Amino acid sequence: MPQLDTSTWFTTVLTSTITLFILIQLKISLQNFPNKPSNKYLKTLKLSNPWELKWTKIFSPLSLPLQ
């Protein structure tokens, strides 16, 4: 039974991989992608909350005096 000659496999696989990579890159580079959507100026509505006008102090439980 003759042995399979595998001496050229590395070259064949390497060139096939490089060729596929180049073909895929060309296909992607020739693809027309849509432009980025432009941002429309949207005026955000600022809702006035009553607690935003007041200064409040938040105490952590560890900073409170012992009772």
Rank of each mutant, 00 (worst) to 15 (best):
S7T: 15
T15M: 06
T17F: 05
F59A: 01
L30R: 15
D5C: 08
L20V: 07
L30T: 13
I18C: 07
I58V: 08
T44M: 03
K36Y: 12
T8R: 14
I24D: 03
T15H: 02
L53W: 02
L47T: 13
S38E: 15
K27T: 04
P2K: 12
S7G: 04
L26N: 13
K27Q: 05
F59Q: 00
N39F: 05
S16A: 13
Y41A: 09
L26W: 01
S16T: 11
F10M: 08
S60D: 06
K43P: 06
I24K: 11
T15V: 12
V13S: 03
S7M: 06
T19A: 15
Q25I: 01
T17P: 02
P37T: 14
Q25C: 03
L42N: 13
P34A: 05
S48P: 00
T6L: 11
L14Q: 09
K27R: 14
P61K: 15
L42G: 01
L64N: 07
T11H: 04
N49G: 00
T17G: 11
P61H: 11
T12S: 08
I58M: 06
Y41I: 02
T12D: 06
L26V: 07
S29P: 00
L64W: 03
I18A: 15
L53V: 07
S38A: 15
F33Q: 08
W51A: 04
Q25A: 05
L20P: 04
F10Y: 04
S16E: 01
L42R: 14
F59H: 10
F21M: 02
